[in-house]
């Protein structure tokens, strides 16, 4: 059966038609679950996360009318998954791909809970957004796959049709450049 377009699904949300969630689920369930699972590494948690995501989307649209529905959903599920990840992490160490991907950035990140103002958070978000935007397509894809969707290296390599060591090399180069960028912008590391 043909999938409905994103704008048609958004119209269902605006009409407060509960079929909107069913259509979203049919079209994007696999994609959204993959993001949640990569972060949480738990099927049950991911499923709950997905339901939370649908509820958030239901509450957000309207008034929101996202230009990129898929990206919007990805952002919501990622937020949900990260929140859940943080909550779980407080209790135990989570063997998640997110843990692994963040561990790669140890030379940039610290474990110290230093005082960081809300303004610095906004500045960091802007810097990273700006950095990723200026990356070549391939590196942008690797960065987003690894740090946004928390995908395993093997999966990224398979998508790109290259070896894992090639992806690792590209990640090392991205990290180097990110560190340089943050330092040059005077962001405290």
């Amino acid at each position: 059966m043909k999938q409905p377009s994103d704008s048609a699904i958004i119209e269902l949300y605006f009409a407060r038609d509960e079929g909107a969630i069913a259509q979203t689920d049919r079209k994007y369930r696999r994609f959204l679950l993959s993001i949640a699972r990569n972060i949480l590494h738990d099927a049950h948690d991911s499923e709950e996360c997905l339901n939370d995501c649908y509820l958030d989307v239901w509450n957000a649209i309207p008034p929101e009318r996202p230009d990129h529905f898929k990206a919007f959903l990805a952002t919501v599920i990622r937020r949900k998954a990260i929140d859940r990840y943080k909550a779980t992490c407080r209790k135990k160490r989570v063997p998640s791909e997110l843990t692994a991907s963040l561990s790669e950035l140890e030379d940039i990140l610290t474990d110290r809970n230093g005082v960081q103002s809300a303004l610095e958070d906004i500045e960091l978000a802007r810097l990273i957004d700006d950095f990723v935007r200026k990356l070549p397509n391939r590196q942008m894809y690797i960065f987003m796959s690894r740090y946004y969707a928390a995908r395993p290296i093997a999966q990224i390599a398979s998508r790109l049709g290259c070896s894992q060591s090639t992806v690792n090399k590209e990640i090392a180069s991205i990290k180097r450049n990110l560190k340089q960028k943050l330092e040059s912008e005077g962001y405290p590391i």
Binding site: T75, I108, L109, L127, V132
Partner: peptide, 25 residues
């Protein structure tokens, strides 16, 4: 900058960039 700060910042990446990533994916 902690891991939380970083992952929160990544979550705030612009939706157009996420869209670019999704379509490339």
């Amino acid at each position: 900058m902690t891991k939380d700060h970083f992952s929160d910042a990544v979550t705030q990446i612009g939706s157009d960039l996420v869209e670019r990533f999704c379509s490339m994916d």
